[in-house]
């Protein structure tokens, strides 16, 4: 009799909890997904200039976001580049032309680097333009060579160079490597799927 009470109380508690949470979940889940979708969409429109809409194209499990111009043509493409930074995973959305030789824009989706140092890749409060680091990647041509980084000197944009952040060399280097690797991997994949 006693053990029956134990079972009943626990069962009822978990049952009520489960029912309640599933109702809450059915309300919250669409909102959470909508938010994630909004963030991603915002990022796609950010990195692909001059597009009206985009469509998702999946090749061998890799998602490419193709930008469609108002005339209905595929003009550019974006994809994710993911890899390790100094102490966190970096997720970057890279927008390129369809031949994947020129970077249009990049957008740092996620980072949790050392506050005040590595976080400067996203936001450098001391600089006139806090977003200068990621903006350096805009319109670099990477047909012939990979992106390279320099320290304490003027980078040569023609040669796909960017300037690393003083005191956050590893984070800077990681961003460069992650983007280089993603371009290398995706260029062939995307061209083969055309």
């Amino acid at each position: 009799m006693k053990s029956a009470k134990l079972i009943i109380v626990l069962t009822v508690t978990t049952l009520l909890s489960g029912i309640g949470l599933s109702f809450l979940n059915s309300w919250a889940q669409p909102k959470i997904e909508a938010y994630q979708q909004k963030v991603l969409e915002q990022a796609i429109y950010d990195v692909l200039p001059g597009i009206e809409k985009y469509k998702v194209k999946e090749i061998e499990g890799t998602k490419f976001y193709e930008g469609i111009s108002p005339e209905g043509q595929t003009v550019n493409v974006a994809f994710r580049a993911i890899g390790r930074g100094f102490q966190s995973e970096l997720r970057i959305l890279v927008g390129m032309d369809t031949s994947m030789t020129k970077i249009l824009n990049v957008n740092l989706l996620q980072q949790a680097e050392t506050p005040g140092l590595g976080t400067k890749i996203a936001d450098d409060p001391g600089a006139d333009n806090p977003a200068w680091f990621m903006q350096q990647f805009d319109s670099l041509t990477v047909a012939q060579q990979d992106i390279d980084y320099v320290k304490n000197e003027e980078p040569d944009k023609e040669n796909a160079e960017i300037e690393a952040i003083t005191g956050a060399t590893i984070s800077s280097k990681s961003v460069v490597n992650i983007i280089n690797k993603a371009i290398d991997n995706n260029r062939e994949l995307y061209n083969s799927g055309q």
């Binding site: 134990l6 909890s17 309300w27 919250a28 909102k31 938010y35």
Partner: peptide, 30 residues
């Protein structure tokens, strides 16, 4: 709530409210 199962019961109740907080915050204050 019987004494023997009070800890699991507490945990279920607490976990429920934590999940409510978590989901609500994720939906309302992402």
């Amino acid at each position: 709530i019987p004494d023997e199962v009070r800890i699991p019961t507490f945990i279920v109740v607490i976990a429920t409210f934590v999940t409510i907080t978590d989901l609500t915050m994720a939906a309302k204050f992402p």
